[in-house]
Design a protein around this nucleic acid. Structure first.
Lengths: 339, 339
DNA sequence: ATGAAAGCGCTAACAG
DNA sequence: CTGTTAGCGCTTTCAT
């Protein structure tokens, strides 16, 4: 496995580096290099398993055929799945993926963005902390190709692929109402994320749309890094007050899992006493006791669209591509709502 | 956000590129560059947010400060977690991570290995399909730094970080025996993976160690890409034969989830009629009905050790580092075994 | 203490 | 049709 360079093959075949480079990049015909010469080059490269140094190539070309993916946390199954689909689609379109996790830290995210730029990625897909307005704006101004995924900045004009968060919780809440629940609680994470704001609005609207009353203390937000602990208090206050809830909407999968854990500890019957419903789901939500009704996000489509929009922009192919997508979620009805 | 280069800062400060480069790489003192000059350079770089082009740097240095991670599938929560810990530790040690999924395809894996080499990664962490003996050998011969994770090639001398698969299932099976189960089935994936072989041996040994009889038809292997379908048949034959099992050992999390699904469809009571136990677990296994006893793998330690061994080798620091780790798994006892 | 110059491996005008 | 040559941006030896 001795390393072989472009120069080596040029010398071995007594040709110029140019000829070799051209042929290897599929521009032999276009440059009228004889079929025969082309074949010699291709064969030699093949036999000696020539592999161009991508750093040199990238430096020269000014691009890397690599897409950077920045997400909050790769060990969150939701983002892992997105990463999976981003990777698949990117590969199909000839791009590699470099990923990094921001851990919900905007400083880290910022560092990551610049670090990826230094690494000369051709474009970025970002599930942002939504606290880097300034840097996102810089990217836009610099005309650098990127698309926001899962979370977007409503005040900045960018490409994005998100889901209909409002519609999602609206639907979830209506499902609960349809099943006769009237005291519906809501547990979310403490966050300015637009997605979370929308989820809350969807919940509130569904209740007021149906003419029911919204009880303020039935809404709790808890810290995402300390949710197990805070969940205990949230659940207790919800089920122990005189205005005891008969259902709870959770805005994300790990909250739902944690909430159910607490309900079980308190020996509250789900769904008989309290129904629960979750935005997005974990792997085994259909096996959980009881199976949790959840609002599934189309991770595959999210990943695919993000890559397609990005690559289209990188390659400046078609300006008519729809660069803002709001995807529908899908309600998976299971027993945790009693229905 | 206009791009600024090394040359620009040298010119602006009326210095040579050398001086600037040296200082920026923290070798100012060592090259006796006046404190004052150093400060000027550093300040200027800071203010103009200078960012070295990593491709140029990499090309010149012959390294990229990047680690390549090749795994079967990033959307498998087990590998996603490993990726997460690899990323964290790598970052601490000053490396970036590039990842790609092989989808259990050895051809893809091979392509990935070479593609990463072309991209000049400094080292590789591979959860191999275990069908690329040849290419792994080439890496060894070439002296390229890499470490196998989760799956190793028993016949090749390499660095690796794996778990004690034999011990794991041995333990799991003993747990079942201790709880009075005698007809213990075993469901695994069809695979030559050493890990799977060991898991099977651990199971068999536990049974024979205790002097019980091993019933061949209680062992099933099913296709990993078609497991939901094949699981149905496997479970049915296990519970419907006259030699009905009273427990099942699953060699991986998604098999356990799928198996439980089938048991429920058949209305088999778990654990009363059949106990189940799983090697590794999914996010909500503690909430599942019944909570599934599982043998947890130390993903954090696996990721950390892999990175440490790799970086140690890349930087040729300490040849005394233990480069073969077999980590212990941990049995999380829950209700699915009746105990 | 600082700078000139060569070179990392590849691409691409441009000239023959 | 092919080769010469000049970079891409950064590091680093070797003089000064």
């Amino acid at each position: 496995m001795k390393k072989i360079f472009l120069k080596d093959i040029a010398e071995a075949l007594d040709l110029s580096k140019t000829a070799v480079s051209l042929v290897l990049n599929g521009r032999g015909d276009e440059n009228k290099i004889s079929k025969e010469t082309q074949k010699r080059i291709l064969d030699f490269a093949e036999q000696n398993s020539y592999r161009p140094n991508q750093m040199a190539r990238g430096l020269s070309l000014g691009k890397s055929e690599t897409i950077g993916l920045i997400i909050p946390n790769i060990s969150d199954i939701f983002y892992a799945r997105i990463a999976h689909h981003v990777e698949l689609r990117a590969k199909e379109l000839g791009y590699n993926v470099v990923f990094s996790s921001s851990n919900e830290n905007s400083e880290t995210e910022k560092e990551l963005i610049y670090s990826m730029l230094n690494r000369q990625v051709d474009g970025l897909i970002i599930a942002s902390t939504q606290k880097n307005q300034k840097d996102i704006l810089k990217l836009t101004e610099a005309g650098f190709p990127f698309v926001l995924i899962d979370r977007h900045y409503p005040d900045i004009e960018t490409n994005y692929v998100i889901v209909d968060n409002f519609g999602g919780t609206h639907n979830m809440t209506r499902h609960l109402l349809k099943n006769g629940r009237r005291k519906i609680g809501f547990i979310s994470i403490k966050s300015q994320l637009e997605a979370m704001v929308q989820r809350r609005l969807g919940y509130e609207r569904a209740i007021s749309d149906e003419g029911f009353e919204l009880l303020k203390y039935h809404t709790k937000t808890i810290d995402r890094f300390n949710y197990q602990y805070e969940m205990k208090a949230a659940i207790q206050s919800m089920v122990q007050s005189e205005q005891r809830v008969d259902a709870i909407v959770f805005t994300t999968h790990y909250l739902a899992a944690s909430g159910l854990r607490e309900l079980k500890l308190l020996d509250i019957k789900v769904p008989q006493e309290v129904a629960i419903i979750s935005f997005d789901e974990l792997g085994a939500f259909d096996l959980v006791d009881p199976p949790i009704t959840s609002n599934k996000q189309p991770v595959d489509a999210m990943g695919n669209h993000a890559v397609e929009i990005l690559v289209n922009e990188i390659e400046k192919k078609n300006s008519m591509v729809d660069n803002k997508r709001v995807l529908r979620t899908q309600l998976l009805i299971r027993k945790s709502c009693g229905a």
